[in-house]
Design a protein around this nucleic acid. Structure first.
Lengths: 143, 143
DNA sequence: TTATGTGTGAAAATGAATTTCAAAAGCAAG
DNA sequence: CTTGCTTTTGAAATTCATTTTCACACATAA
């Protein structure tokens, strides 16, 4: 899966006429080795610890390329930093988020997907992605 | 509905020991008279046009109070500005977000609501609220 | 290898949001 | 109403994430 993502970025680079550079390789490696939503600063510090030469502007620039290439997605939390998460093939971003213990249950529902398509079509809207989060209390936090 | 919100803010103020000031009244009036998701800067400019004395720090401060009071909610889009929207009783937060022009189309769909309830029940989850955002290109950005 | 244009790092610039602080205003008690 | 105490405010300064600038380094194709 890491190999596929690297290939995906390479073909994106080729298509866009971007050059392959040491920095982008490194940043991609580090990004792919993270889990959860990492902020640019966090990623930059991790990288800098091992590759001190790399500047934060490059990390910012490169993460935007990953978004363009379809490898990553911006996630906005409420902490004033932009975070990035991986885009997995066939993934849906439907979550039950427990406000008690912050646990997350993922789910998928074909009917909702279909309804989304209908709604979008009705508004002349072309869907790129979606996010659905249901907030509440999970079974163990209710008791 | 505007009256109720004003009352709600008054009782919040009383409970918190906040003072009632001309500025907070004005900002609440302007906020309540807006639709969609307004950014602090936009609201500030609207207010300043009529009440030049009011500073933007006050607008920032006051909108945070509205959130605390349960009248408003922060909405993060991808344009680097924090926006605020009204919290309506029984409201749903379903949006088509155009990644081209950042415009937002609101919609409601009873079937999706029902499906959400079913999904939640299946996981022993008690729903408090939800958020659904569909990202893509609106009709005019597609052409 | 060389020519050309892209990519990079460091530093400066930007811009939203927050903080500071002295002055103004609300509020309760007399 | 006046006094005294506290909160609130506006303007300016500050902070901090992100973006831009620019000279230099590097990738790529001929």
């Amino acid at each position: 899966m890491i190999i596929e993502k690297k290939k995906a970025f390479n073909s994106f680079s080729a298509k866009k006429g971007l050059r392959s550079t040491r920095q982008r390789d490194i940043i991609l490696d580090f990004f792919l080795s993270t889990h959860q939503h990492i902020s640019v600063e966090e990623l930059y510090l991790k990288i800098k610890a091992i590759h001190p030469g790399i500047g934060n502007a490059t990390v910012y620039r490169t993460l935007k390329l990953f978004v363009e290439a379809g490898l990553a997605r911006e996630v906005l939390l409420h902490d004033g930093q932009t975070r990035y998460e991986h885009i997995m093939a066939g993934e849906h971003h439907d979550h039950l988020v427990c406000t008690g213990c912050n646990s997350i249950i993922e789910f998928e529902n074909e009917t909702i997907e279909q309804l989304q398509n209908e709604i979008a079509a009705r508004h002349g809207f072309m869907i790129q992605s979606h996010k659905m989060e249901i907030y509440g209390l999970c079974a163990s936090c209710r008791s």
